[in-house]
Amino acid sequence: MLESRLEQADLLKKVVEAISGLVNDCNFDCNDSGIALQAMDNSHVALVSMMLKAEAFSPYRCDRNIALGINLSSLTKVLRAAQSSDILTLKAEDAPDVVNLVFESSEKDRISEYDLKLMDIDQEHLGIPETEYAASISMPSNEFQRICKDLMNISESVSIECTKEGVKFAAAGDIGTGSVTLKQHSNVDKPEQSVEIDLSEPVALSFSLKYLVNFTKATSLASKVKLSLSNEVPLLVEYELSGGNSSYLRFYLAPKIGD
């Protein structure tokens, strides 16, 4: 059986909010290392991959592999009943029909309990090859969100060009063009404001802004975001979850090609 307790319901609320624009139904795959999720959007352009390690929970118990097939809009409805600071416990039997969610207020004076019906989801599982990316950029997550939203006013796609000079996000549309260039810089007092660029070779790729803006719904989960790029492979956009236990929310986006 599964029994996992999260100190802050907020974490799951935000994860579900961040991915529900891309995916309707998906399996939460539970095993002794934690809860994982992988799903593609309907158009096969974007993929979300989440890992919540057992260490993100206290306690965490899962004896065998359990797939929880969940409709995300139904889960959103149930999670609306959880206050952000509530303690959230997820429970399921082996081969379950429902997942049980319990929300406790931190003052322990209220306990809410919900059972969410599960569904059978036959999900395609993709293998993601280990990639040595040519460029990786670590930057404030809110800055990335701002850039994507601003450039979406200009065009539906953005080119991301990374050289040793910096990283340039550029868009060209009917009304004109726009670009934002970030140079590497360290902020000692506020490290979350730093921009770090790790480059082995220059990269230039184009992506759909609609998807990138969708990914940035994860912004409130982490102060920083990491973009990893190589020519002619999908972009990886990564948010670290719940500090330092290597839990993550990753998005992959197929590049656009040709002109």
Binding site: H44, V45, L47, L126, G127, P129, S206, P234, A254
Partner: peptide, 14 residues
């Protein structure tokens, strides 16, 4: 406008 690739061209079925 550039054409949108499919993710399946990069990732294999596991």
């Amino acid at each position: 406008t550039p054409l949108q690739n499919d993710l399946g061209e990069f990732f294999y079925m596991a």
